[in-house]
């Protein structure tokens, strides 16, 4: 469980606005960058207002994020971003399906349950395969046979 304070988000928003403003104002061709410059100026103003209101309203709101519960899916997302293209979509998303089902199953897990998830996963991925490869003719990156 991690706690994030409202101030941290306000600072994040300010840094983001400053970075985008630097990118917009530091680039060439003033004509092409006029609109982004107006937008980032507004973003700077709004982030400043957020900071002012944070202290004025004494908004010390803290939000908790159950990072231990979320870490499997976040790791899977990172895993997919780096390997999805090489391992193939069907193979890597099957891993996502099985891992999500296994980790987030609320009751006791055993080999029988794992085999059940494998069966459900196979059925679901077969449906996806027929839907995308046969009906929609989408050629996704593949690995070995699938």
């Amino acid at each position: 469980m991690i706690e994030i304070k409202n101030l941290a988000i306000v600072i994040f928003v300010m840094i983001l606005s400053i970075l985008l403003a630097i990118a917009s104002f530091g680039a060439g061709s003033p004509q092409a960058y006029l609109f982004p410059r107006i937008i980032t100026s507004i973003m700077l103003l709004l982030s400043l207002l957020l900071l002012v209101f944070h202290f004025y309203e004494k908004n010390y709101q803290t939000e908790t994020i159950n990072i231990s519960k979320l870490s499997p899916i976040l790791i899977l997302i990172i895993f997919f971003i780096f390997t999805g293209e090489y391992l193939g979509f069907y193979f890597s998303t099957s891993i996502i399906f099985l891992t999500v089902c296994y980790f987030y199953f609320p009751q006791k897990k055993d080999i029988k349950k794992l085999l059940f998830f494998l069966l459900i996963g196979t059925c679901f991925m077969t449906t996806i395969y027929f839907l995308f490869s046969f009906l929609l003719k989408v050629q996704v990156p593949r690995f070995f046979l699938f």
Binding site: I73, F80, I81, G84, E85, F89, T93, I96, F97, V100, C101, F103, Y104, F105, P106, I120, F124, M125, I128, F132, L136, V138, Q139, V140, P141
Partner: peptide, 27 residues
Amino acid sequence: PTHYMAAAITILAIFGTYSVQHNFADV
């Protein structure tokens, strides 16, 4: 159950996004 729903939505989102331009960057 939530875990099936979440896994199915994630996979549909990945395939659905890729199918528009066949571009992994979109995913």
